[in-house]
Design a protein around this nucleic acid. Sequence first.
DNA 1: TTAAAATCCGGCAACGTTCCCGATAACGTT
DNA 2: AACGTTATCGGGAACGTTGCCGGATTTTAA
Lengths: 334, 334
Amino acid sequence: MDTITIKDIARALNLSTSTVSRALRDSYEINPETKRLVIEYAERLDYRPNPIALSLKENRSRVIGVIVPQIANNFFSQVINGIEAIAYNRGYNVIIFQSHESFERELLTVQQAVTRKADGLLISLSSSTSDVSHLRTLQEKKLPIVLFDRVSAELDLPCVTADNFAGAFAATEHLIQTGRRRIAHVTIPPYISITQERLAGYRAALEQYGIPYVESLVQYAGFGQYEVEPIIDDLLSQKPDAFFAASDRLALGCLAALKKRNVAIPETVSLIGFTNTPVADLLAPPMSTVEQPALEIGQTAAEQLIDLIEDKPKKPKPGTVRIPTRLHVRTSTQ
Amino acid sequence: MDTITIKDIARALNLSTSTVSRALRDSYEINPETKRLVIEYAERLDYRPNPIALSLKENRSRVIGVIVPQIANNFFSQVINGIEAIAYNRGYNVIIFQSHESFERELLTVQQAVTRKADGLLISLSSSTSDVSHLRTLQEKKLPIVLFDRVSAELDLPCVTADNFAGAFAATEHLIQTGRRRIAHVTIPPYISITQERLAGYRAALEQYGIPYVESLVQYAGFGQYEVEPIIDDLLSQKPDAFFAASDRLALGCLAALKKRNVAIPETVSLIGFTNTPVADLLAPPMSTVEQPALEIGQTAAEQLIDLIEDKPKKPKPGTVRIPTRLHVRTSTQ
DNA sequence: TTAAAATCCGGCAACGTTCCCGATAACGTT
DNA sequence: AACGTTATCGGGAACGTTGCCGGATTTTAA
């Protein structure tokens, strides 16, 4: 409450605020003796410059805004972990916003972040976001923005994602190489960039191995609680021999639904997910996954953003950085 | 970048900044016609008051600082979810800090949060924090603080936790009622409040059912990657018939270690965890758990804190709010 | 008619900080 | 002796906003 300011120091030492200010920033035009006095006194009273006053003066906040669909999601919380680590090291704080997969909410939180004077934004788009004009406006205002995971090709912004194409390709190829032919793909809403990329990887693998692409084997699930069940029923009626789920939540949903229906995994169908759950090993059966490097995505995105904020024009961005995924083969596909 | 201010409006309409300010706050002493002009112009240019200028003037930031040991942890990310929801509704933003289970880091981040002028703090103590004088100092400075989950009895601060005693009692009682007698308890570092409470619940249940308390059956694990393994080995040599793990991470660690050693669950030993993992149902075997109401803990803590910040003295706090836990019985204890 | 009140608005200070511009000595240079 | 340098410091403005004080004009009341 009673924080001490530069004025207090000035008054106590019979100096002007300017002198104290310059003494603290070690200006050459201050008498070493005066400097010593000021610095000692400041340390004794544990003086800290008021960042709000600095923000007002310098028109920057040293805060970066992070907008994710959901915090309580393994992938995103790991990404945030990575972001926070980099931000901490480079002297920034992180303000978190959730869009809750709602476009309207995304609009609001983006606005919030801007009025809060965030120096830059890290955004993963909500699944219901198809229009990105709100971001284009900010882009035109030269606000530094880096997209991650759920990116948009419509915007000429730097992006950081997992290598979704390669990951999906690897997963599908693995299923094919273990003898599967009718591979169902349960995926997330089609607006999102990662949906497209993973679907493309899936199709490319099928094509490479001369397996026809069957459109009805690809099903889109929303984010509702019980949306997966009917989709699984529909797919099962088509007698697939494998499931490739495009997200963490869907993979677990598939596993639960398949177990509930007593479908033997991997005997009847194999199952592989695109996920970040740390317990894939402990599931029944242990589930094969394509692991997304969440931490690294967060770190990379944060570094790019801060470079942008601090105007280090070393690289001619924008462009998409793709972080490699890792294929973990476990019992569910063997 | 080029945000418009009250000055811009004043200049454009040939008014003074004071008049514009009062018009925007709908002051009675402004001509309705002038008000209309100002408000229309402000809306047309999408004017937003600069929160930093307000913070400086009003000496409050409308930001609450949240300090957790780890974001990338199911329990904490769900708590943060709850915090963010309440904060959003009441016009606050949330800045996240991680202590990484380090006392030094906790000191630093708490300092950070204070210099950042957070209006209040929500803290879950790091596992290596035994000294809480840094918080006592803040308490004396009247900074609103609410502790959650990992609280400290040494501080006279409002706390929000799961009902750890009742939860541990229920878990232990359940193990006893399913015929177990030698119940091992794997738990977290002893400084932390929740460790004590859960241990007390465990002991109370033993006592109530006339089962002797064996000290060697209680083992403390740190937060290292492979710390659980030797503990499990030690405990197994004592031939327990059940494991009660005091945390999310430990429960999964126990499960993994037991499976690795081919210990049949629940035939040889049963296993129950104090955890928040949403996939307990899908594990092999499905794991019994005591579920902590993470979201609700976050919501309650945030509400208490904001009440404190806004000085609503309705309740004679401080005191500890205990949110009930829920026992989920699954295969691992049957 | 005049004083009092009401109406409407501008000026100024303040929040904490930095920076530009001077001011005052003490000194050295021609 | 006059002037330029250097060293050291203070004054004031500015960032965006609000609140107090006061001022001017008009309306109301006595």
